[in-house]
């Protein structure tokens, strides 16, 4: 065991760095927007103040961390994050093309059957209700239109 103080966690450094970067970007960008016009405060004034705040707070946070590093944060379940985020991105990417019903049906099936290991029967029932059922409930019940497929063949059969 060395007697040196524990080091600042890498994720915290990345966090501080990103906030400082966002702050700096905001500072520069808001100067371009114009801080002051002949009429008074310009569109850049408020963002400029926020940029100053972000940069200043990042610096303060860094000093605090260097003095006494915060405890390690809870570990994230990476697999869960990747599975959920990737499936959502794919869903969003194909929703306009395949329509809400088909894309949501496969999305739900993935989460219920493949990830959740539910039985085929319950997976299918919930997936159908959540995709085709939700589509009709929203379209006709609540008057909220969910997207239909952009592919003519699917579109004509109501998907």
């Amino acid at each position: 065991m060395t007697e040196r103080a524990p080091r600042v966690a890498p994720s915290v450094l990345v966090g501080i760095g990103s906030f400082a970067a966002v702050g700096t970007y905001t500072l520069i960008d808001s100067i371009g927007l114009g801080l002051w016009t002949s009429l008074g405060p310009g569109p850049g004034l408020f963002p400029f103040a926020m940029g100053v705040l972000l940069v200043a707070m990042s610096a303060l946070w860094l000093i605090q961390e260097l003095r006494s590093p915060s405890e390690a944060a809870a570990v994230v379940d990476r697999r869960l994050v990747i599975e959920v985020v990737v499936s959502l991105v794919i869903l969003a990417a194909v929703m306009d093309l395949l329509g809400f019903q088909l894309s949501m049906f496969f999305f739900l099936l993935y989460h219920l059957k493949l990830r959740g290991r539910r039985s085929w029967v319950s997976s299918l029932i919930i997936a159908v209700a959540g995709s085709f059922g939700a589509f009709y409930a929203f379209n006709y019940g609540l008057n909220v239109a969910l997207p239909v497929s952009a592919i003519p063949l699917l579109n004509t059969i109501g998907l």
Binding site: V84, L88, F107, H111, L112, I126, A145, P147
Partner: peptide, 23 residues
């Protein structure tokens, strides 16, 4: 919980989509 997760995700997608009807 696997069913709840799937249903909550379903509502999140619908909620986010319908605000401007845009993916």
């Amino acid at each position: 919980s696997s069913i709840l997760t799937a249903l909550i995700l379903l509502f999140m997608v619908i909620g986010a989509y319908t605000i401007n009807f845009s993916v």
